[in-house]
Design a protein around this nucleic acid. Structure first.
Length: 282
DNA sequence: CTTCTAACA
DNA sequence: TGTTAGGA
């Protein structure tokens, strides 16, 4: 537990330093003004595209001086973010969604939504459509009535309009569940476990987001509120952080499982030994 | 000479 | 996205 936590903090610090370097560059040109041509030159983006981004709404319009557009380093850093995301395969409309979600406040749900909407290299899991009858058969008809509502609440399955079919959000999870049910574990109990798990994972995710935010913000002296122009940076950090979080959760879960298993087996052994001794004395 | 818009490829 | 035309 402690190791992983420290590893996370280290990585977090690395990201923090990287941000500092970026900011140093920016500080040199803190309140610098750019013409569209200068901006195009330093970002490597053609002026044509800079204007195109404005029309698409991903880049704020410049301050107008006469008929001239005056760009700031806020534009500069946003352009860098845009081209960065573009290179990673995001479409302009995805970027637009992400940016808009950010302006409305840093809500984790917004990230998840945008994330799974278009860039789904994350979850190779495509929802599978199956009839309710098939679902029941999959679990050998061992699904309790009350469990259905619970599964819907947990968004494990979504009911189709025809009321005959469901979308299984994660076939993998469902199959794993079916195997456990086949060994005699009540489906309803599994749902309870998933519910508990989800609550904790969301708590951890929230903490991670908070951690990143405070690290980034601490570079900006005042521990007040997020500078809105830096929200894209924060978002990008969180975005990069996700695989790390997944690995950490993975590792922690493995450890916890092993520990629990050992405890369980240990108890069993104790009991068995006691029985043997009782048998001996009797 | 730079910047902007619109339109077409 | 690149290019061009025409105007401020």
């Amino acid at each position: 537990m402690q190791d992983t936590k420290n590893a996370m903090l280290n990585l977090m610090a690395q990201f923090g330093n990287k941000m500092k370097d970026d900011d140093k560059e920016n500080l040199q040109q803190d309140d610098r003004e750019y013409s569209i041509d200068e901006l195009a030159r330093v970002t490597g983006i053609t002026s044509r595209n800079i204007r195109a981004y404005q029309e698409k709404g991903v880049l704020p319009p410049p301050q107008l001086r006469g008929r001239k557009g005056i760009y700031s380093n806020a534009h500069y850093s946003r352009l860098r973010l845009i081209s960065d995301l573009l290179e990673r395969g995001y479409t302009l409309s995805t970027i637009s969604d992400l940016l808009n979600a950010l302006e409305e406040g840093m809500d984790l749900r917004a990230f998840v939504g945008v994330e799974s909407a278009l860039t789904s290299p994350w979850t190779d899991e495509t929802p599978v459509l199956m009839s309710i009858k098939e679902l029941f058969e999959m679990f050998d008809n061992k699904i309790e009535e009350e469990s259905i509502g619970k599964a819907l609440e947990l968004d494990l399955v979504r009911l189709e309009d025809d009321l005959e079919h469901v979308q299984v959000q994660s076939m993998r999870t469902m199959k794993a569940g079916a195997e456990l049910v086949a060994t005699g574990i009540p489906f309803n109990d599994l749902l309870d476990i998933i519910r508990m798990l989800r609550g904790n994972v969301e708590r951890v995710a929230g903490e991670l987001v908070k951690l990143v935010s405070t690290h980034v913000l601490s570079d900006y002296e005042g521990d007040s509120l997020p500078p809105s122009e830096d929200l894209p940076k924060i978002a990008d950090l969180i975005w990069r952080l996700r695989p790390l979080a997944e690995m950490a959760v993975h590792a922690e879960l493995a450890r916890a499982m092993e520990k629990a298993a050992n405890h369980f087996l240990g108890d069993r052994l104790e009991a068995i030994i006691q029985h043997m001794e009782e048998d001996k004395s009797s």
